[in-house]
Design a binder for these strands. Structure first.
Lengths: 125, 125
DNA sequence: CTCTTCCTCAACCGAATGGTTGAGGAAGGG
DNA sequence: CCCTTCCTCAACCATTCGGTTGAGGAAGAG
């Protein structure tokens, strides 16, 4: 498991159980047992999920007697939003520019400016 | 492969090659061959990656003679940002409230009635 | 010390993933 | 018609993943 950090975060959240854990941890810290309670899988399986989240930096586990309280490290989520927003914005920008090009494109036989025809040919219905 | 949409999108972007494809497609549509060129894997492997992105709704493939131009469908990215922002914000809010509690806590920590008041004694502000 | 509680480690298993190679369909160009 | 280009489908292989069970460590309670 030597993937880059971004891949680890995306992969960690690709599992609905892990996403649900993150959602619950956003409200309050919890112990492994508390986290495991709603799901009908073994506690070991939950511990494994927690380890995936921990390796992604999404979660940290401290020590309180026998308990291992789990805490959400929400800052890592910014890694993803930064990446996503970057390309969403770029695609949006390109789309906007494409609209401009189409708007200024005289469709080969209609040299008149076609930017005004929002409802061409009248409304049939 | 019957996962929920959100899982599919997260899983699709958990691979650095696929993320790179999305990044390039944000700039311009491309054919499978063009997309495959930078990577030293077979074209079939790239086609498989494209299929993962397509199943996630991130990409669409049309037909232009022998070409299969690939187009990025950036709106799906909002699915993720919505999910992420929801819990990032919730965690942030919880953190802010914890700060408030700590700020209003006097040195002597012996609350007579834990459930009675959010700001016991005189409110300093 | 013993016992119980909470949790993790290790080994194993079936299914999914990411890659390969080989065959073949679809759409033009000669 | 044949031939080339672009791409996908199918079969196969190694690795990873999500789950299980069994064993065991850590820290209080008796």
């Amino acid at each position: 498991m030597a993937a880059d950090p971004l891949s680890r975060v995306f992969a960690a959240l690709a599992d609905p159980t892990r996403r649900d854990m993150v959602a619950r941890l956003a409200g309050a810290d919890a112990t492994v047992g508390e986290l495991a309670e709603p799901y009908d899988v073994s506690v070991q399986a939950v511990s494994k999920h927690l380890r995936v989240l921990e390796d992604a930096g999404l979660v940290s586990r401290s020590r309180d007697a026998q308990r291992r309280p789990v805490h959400l490290e929400a800052e890592v989520l910014d890694l993803m939003t930064t990446w996503i927003e970057r390309y969403r914005r770029q695609a949006e920008e390109r789309y906007r520019r494409l609209d401009d090009v189409l708007a200024s494109m005289p469709d080969d036989v209609s040299p008149t400016h076609p930017t005004d025809d929002t409802t061409p040919g009248g409304n049939p219905s």
